[in-house]
């Protein structure tokens, strides 16, 4: 199959594709979410030491992974926007920031509700939690910076620089549990080692991760459609095309 992917670098071409893809990812997120919650809350056994409090893992870990991944993807789109001055790249970076902030907030919130019954505290200034809080502030900073600059292309460049500078925080979050002696536990799942958790628990967590992937892609594609329509106002292609 020979597909000209560069065609989709144009907002006019990408808009209908984003609409179709968003519907598919939203439907997949619903199906996977129901399956993941069924495994996590019903099928997976109670943990021997943490009891049922561990079930927060099924939303905490996927949200934390998504918060980090979305930042890296946002920085990637920002680099493309800076390097090639492509409009759609900057719009994608703009669309990712609120969802990334939402995931970072959820990682911190659900982590607090997991920490209280297991560690005895909602919050500690340890390296993992503090660096994740900085990630949330970086997302909020990108959103605030864009809101503070009226001219969209100038806002694109300023936000791209901030996103690229802030990406250094992502490996700090990931390796914080190895580099420092943290209250937060080390990784239970790694690409290079066998998982240290039961297979049912792992399956539930991975299905929920897939569900959140699909959710984030779907919601970002919805948001980028709105951004395209808002920012391309007055473009010739919009005058020729009327939405259904």
């Amino acid at each position: 199959m020979n597909v000209n992917w560069f065609k989709y670098a144009s907002p006019a071409s990408f808009l209908p594709l984003a609409s179709r893809l968003a519907r598919g990812f939203a439907a997949a997120a619903v199906v996977l979410g129901i399956a993941g919650l069924a495994i996590g809350l019903v099928i997976a056994p109670t943990d021997a030491t943490q009891g049922d409090a561990y079930r927060i893992i099924f939303i905490h870990v996927p949200a934390a992974w998504m918060a980090m991944l979305i930042y890296v993807v946002m920085a990637g789109w920002s680099a493309l926007a800076l390097g090639y001055n492509t409009r759609l790249s900057a719009m994608m970076a703009q669309a990712l920031a609120p969802t990334g902030a939402s995931m970072a907030f959820l990682a911190l919130w659900t982590g607090a509700f997991w920490g209280r019954p297991t560690w005895g505290t909602y919050w500690a200034w340890d390296a993992r939690m503090t660096s994740t809080l900085i990630l949330l502030f970086l997302y909020l900073g990108v959103i605030a910076l864009r809101a503070a600059i009226d001219e969209p292309r100038r806002a694109d460049r300023a936000c791209a620089v901030l996103a690229l500078v802030g990406v250094v925080n992502v490996p700090i979050i990931y390796f914080s549990v190895q580099w420092w002696n943290t209250l937060h536990q080390g990784s239970s799942v790694s690409l290079t080692a066998a998982p240290t958790m039961a297979m049912t628990m792992l399956a539930g967590m991975l299905v929920m991760t897939l569900a959140l992937w699909c959710y984030c892609i779907g919601v970002v594609l919805w948001r980028v459609q709105a951004i395209i329509v808002e920012r391309e106002e007055g473009a010739a292609w919009m005058a020729r095309r009327v939405p259904a």
Binding site: D52, A53, R55, I56, I59, H60, A63, L106, W109, T110, F113, W114, R116, P117
Partner: peptide, 10 residues
């Protein structure tokens, strides 16, 4: 309380 607090916020 903790499960409702986490899943509810989610």
């Amino acid at each position: 309380f903790y499960l409702v607090g986490a899943y509810g916020a989610f």
